Amino acid sequence: NQESVVAAVLIPINTALTVGMMTTRVVSPTGAPAEDIPRLISMQVNQVVPMGTTLMPDMVKGYAP
């Protein structure tokens, strides 16, 4: 099972992602793949992402898996 990126903390809208904001988990439906964490760092979210929420590609500005 592939791990997806999950918010480790509450991420406010327009916040640039840091490694400490993200964790990985096997979830369904799958979100952004765990191996993309290095690409996701410094990208901004376009909505509030509550802690424990799977990071879906459409939540991150300019990100395409």
Rank of each mutant, 00 (worst) to 15 (best):
V27I: 05
P38H: 12
N46D: 02
I41A: 02
V48D: 15
L17K: 02
A64E: 14
A64M: 14
I11Q: 02
R39S: 06
V49R: 04
Q47V: 11
I37P: 04
M59P: 00
V5R: 01
R39Q: 10
Q44R: 15
L10V: 07
A7C: 05
L40A: 01
Y63N: 01
Q47H: 04
Y63S: 04
V27K: 01
A32K: 02
G20E: 14
Q2N: 13
T54D: 00
G52C: 09
G20P: 08
G62F: 07
P33V: 06
E35I: 13
A32T: 10
V48P: 11
L10Q: 07
E35H: 15
I13L: 11
S4E: 04
Q47F: 09
T54C: 06
T53P: 01
M56W: 05
P50S: 09
P33Q: 03
A16I: 14
V9G: 01
N46M: 09
P65K: 09
T24S: 13
L55F: 05
D36W: 08
V9L: 07
T23I: 12
D36G: 04
D36I: 05
M56F: 08
V19F: 15
T23V: 10
N46W: 09
I13G: 00
S4N: 01
I41E: 04
M43N: 01
A34I: 06
V27Y: 05
P12C: 09
A64N: 13
M51D: 06
V9E: 10
V9K: 07
P57E: 01
V6C: 08
S28K: 12
L40M: 03
P65Q: 12
L55K: 03
T24N: 06
T30W: 14
L55Y: 05
Q44M: 13
T53S: 12
V19Q: 13
M43S: 02
G20R: 14
A16M: 12
P57D: 01
A34V: 07
N1H: 13
P33R: 07
V6Q: 01
P29Y: 07
I37G: 03
Q44H: 13
V5N: 01
T54V: 07
P65A: 13
T24C: 09
V60Y: 05
M56I: 05
A7W: 08
D58G: 13
A7Y: 08
P50I: 09
E35R: 15
T23L: 12
V19N: 09
S4P: 03
N46G: 02
A8P: 00
L55C: 05
M51E: 14
D58W: 15
A34F: 05
M59I: 02
E35L: 12
S4Y: 07
N1P: 14
I37C: 02
L17G: 03
P33E: 04
M43H: 10
L55H: 02
S42G: 15
T53K: 11
I41K: 04
N14F: 11
R25C: 09
E35K: 14
M22F: 04
G52W: 08
I13S: 11
T24R: 15
N14D: 12
I41H: 00
S4A: 00
G20N: 13
P50D: 08
T54M: 05
A32I: 15
T18G: 04
V49F: 06
V49W: 05
V27G: 01
Q2S: 12
T30P: 15
V27F: 03
N1C: 14
G20A: 15
P57V: 09
A34W: 06
Q2T: 12
G62Q: 06
V19G: 09
V48Y: 10
G52D: 02
R25Q: 09
T24M: 08
Q44T: 13
A32V: 15
V45W: 06
T24G: 08
G52F: 08
A64L: 14
L17P: 00
M22R: 06
T54S: 00
V45N: 02
T18K: 11
E3N: 07
P57R: 07
P33A: 05
D58L: 07
G20I: 10
S42C: 11
V27M: 01
